[in-house]
Each structure stands twice: as structure tokens, then as C-alpha cells.
């Protein structure tokens, strides 16, 4: 049985990775999970300089999910490269760094620094975080802005680029086509859906930022639909995510057209989620006598 999958020329030992922002740089969850068993670790979004992030409360629970507005707090690219990449290099897993910025120049600076680090296999470009006032989603909600940043970063990047798309758009396939036309190597979707929660007893917003990105099992049907539509619209490999809680959920995304999947909020619910899902995909392949994982990609019928 072969669990390998390929994203933009990079072969992963299995299709299960971590969603940016839910797994730190792997260190915290390495107490629970053998990182050697993951297809890839995707690190928390990193900018050219440290970012303080938003005020608290930053997280709130909603029915079947959660809202977050961390605001991309990060220690800056230098700390990531000096501390976190060497930590991850010890493991037999692919390293994918999520990159954020306020301006195109910020992104370029990070992308160029990472170009000197051969241990980083892929870059995921965050053009979809809904919780910051500048940058991020500002580049991901208009097709021309997404085209421009993608083509600009392609000029500076040594590693293949995964553009992480926002679901907070009228038609995600327009964004996917723009990224593809600009030379993106892969897509990941979906980032969180912008939401809001109000505490009616205190008459206050549950999150200091007022709005937050919704994730968790409640958003999964939306994410599956968007992965399917995007897979129909472009040829790029897709990393599917959004509320994946178990192997069946992961396989839904794969049948819809994803070449790999990311586990996000469910790491908080069950820190062993990622490796349990790897095992569950193996069990599914055994049960249905699927020899190659790649045969499942986009294999939904009808």
C-alpha cells in the first residue's frame, strides 16, 4: 500500500499535514505526536518582523466550532529560522512555512530568506487571514491583487508556492484561476470563515477583535464544496482543510479533489488527531483495496 502523495514536485510520505496556526512549529505537539509520522508540518504564519497580534480574548467557542482572532502573532522570520526550522529538521517530515505580511515587500523579504533554507520544502502564502488590518486577506479577496502578489513572489521564491485561499469571497474558483494564471504551484483551502459571537448577558463581543475566523467541524461541508469546485476549475494540486476531525472527513476532501489534507482546530480537541487520521486512511485503503493513495484523489463519482 502506497500512501505517498505529491504536491508541486514534493513527495510526502502520507497526505496528512497540520494547518498553519494550530500546531505552532511542532514543538508543543511533539509531546503527543511522533512528527516523523506526518506528511508535513505547516508552521504558524511568519512575517519579516515580530508581530504582537490582537488583544485578548482571542478565541471563543461556537456551536461545533470556534472563532479565533490571534492576529498572526509571530516571532519574526529570524527566530523561526534560528530556532524552529532546526527543531523540525530533526524529523523525517516535510517542512512547509506559512508566510504572512502587511505589504508585498514584507512577503518578499521572508520568501527570500527562506530561499536559503533547503530544509523548507514548500512555502504557503497567507493571503487569507481575516484577523489583521493590513495585508493577508487584503491580497486574497480580489483576483487582480492575488494575481499580482503571486506573480511577484514567484520571481523571488526558490521553493514552490502554495497560495492559501480564503472562503470569504463570492467565487473561490475566480481566485484559484488567478493564482494559477500567476504561476502558483499549489493551492490550500479553506482558511477560516469570518464570524462573530456576542455574549448577550454582558452585551459584549466574545472576541476583542469583534470578528474572528471560524473553524472546526461545523464548516466542513462548505470546505468540501469549495475544494470540489476548485478542483474542477484548475489543474493545480489542492491541500484541503476545514473541520477535518477524522479519517472519513479527510477522505471526503480527497475524493472531492484534494491531494493532501490539513488538520487544524481538531488538534486542540484531540492532540493525537493527525496520526489517528493517517492510520484511518490506511484502514480505509485496506478495506476498499486501494493500492495507491493517488487513486483516491478526485475519485468521487457522479
Amino acid at each position: 500500500m502506497n500512501l505517498k502523495t505529491t504536491i508541486a514536485g514534493v513527495t510526502l510520505q502520507n497526505p496528512v499535514m497540520t494547518a498553519s496556526g494550530t500546531f505552532g512549529s511542532g514543538m508543543e505537539y511533539s509531546e503527543f505526536v511522533d512528527l516523523n509520522r506526518l506528511g508535513a508540518v505547516v508552521t504558524k504564519g511568519v512575517a519579516n518582523v515580530p508581530w504582537q497580534g490582537n488583544p485578548t480574548p482571542r478565541v471563543a467557542e461556537v456551536y461545533g466550532g470556534m472563532l479565533n482572532a490571534i492576529g498572526l502573532q509571530n516571532p519574526g522570520i529570524d527566530v523561526l529560522m534560528e530556532r524552529d526550522i532546526p527543531f523540525l529538521r530533526q524529523y523525517n517530515t516535510k517542512i512547509i512555512v506559512n508566510v504572512c505580511g502587511k505589504t508585498v515587500e514584507d512577503y518578499i523579504e521572508v520568501v527570500e530568506k527562506l530561499g536559503d533554507e533547503p530544509a523548507v520544502a514548500l512555502l504557503e502564502i497567507n493571503v487569507s487571514c481575516p484577523n489583521v488590518k493590513e495585508g493577508a486577506i487584503a491580497f486574497g479577496q480580489k483576483a487582480d491583487a492575488l494575481y499580482n502578489i503571486t506573480s511577484e513572489l514567484k520571481k523571488h521564491a526558490r521553493q514552490p508556492l502554495i497560495m492559501k485561499l480564503s472562503p470569504n469571497v463570492t467565487d473561490i474558483t475566480e481566485m484559484a484561476k488567478a493564482a494559477e494564471a500567476a504561476g502558483a504551484d499549489a493551492l490550500s483551502l479553506i482558511n477560516t470563515l469570518t464570524g462573530m459571537k456576542i455574549d448577550v448577558h454582558k452585551r459584549k463581543f466574545a472576541i476583542a477583535n469583534k470578528t474572528g475566523g471560524m473553524s472546526g467541524p461545523a464548516i466542513k461541508p462548505i470546505a468540501v464544496r469549495m475544494v470540489y469546485q476548485t478542483a474542477q476549475a484548475v489543474k493545480l494540486p489542492i491541500i484541503g482543510m476545514g473541520g477535518i476531525a477524522n479519517a472519513e472527513d479527510a477522505i471526503e476532501f480527497i475524493l472531492a479533489g484534494a491531494s493532501a489534507v490539513s488538520i487544524g482546530a481538531m488538534n486542540f480537541v484531540n492532540p493525537y488527531s493527525t496520526i489517528e487520521i493517517v492510520k484511518g486512511i490506511e484502514d480505509y485503503m485496506k478495506k476498499y483495496k486501494v493500492e495507491n493513495f493517488s487513486d483516491l484523489i478526485g475519485a468521487v463519482e457522479g
Binding site: G21, G24, F32, T56, V59, N68, I70
Partner: peptide, 16 residues
Amino acid sequence: EEHMACGVGACLGCVV
């Protein structure tokens, strides 16, 4: 205390 998601230092939800 603060609202938390992961409890293990990964999500950066509960900062001071």
C-alpha cells in the same frame, strides 16, 4: 486565566 483553545502553547489564544 484566559480563554484557551489548545492548552499546550500552540494556538497563542491565551496570552498576557
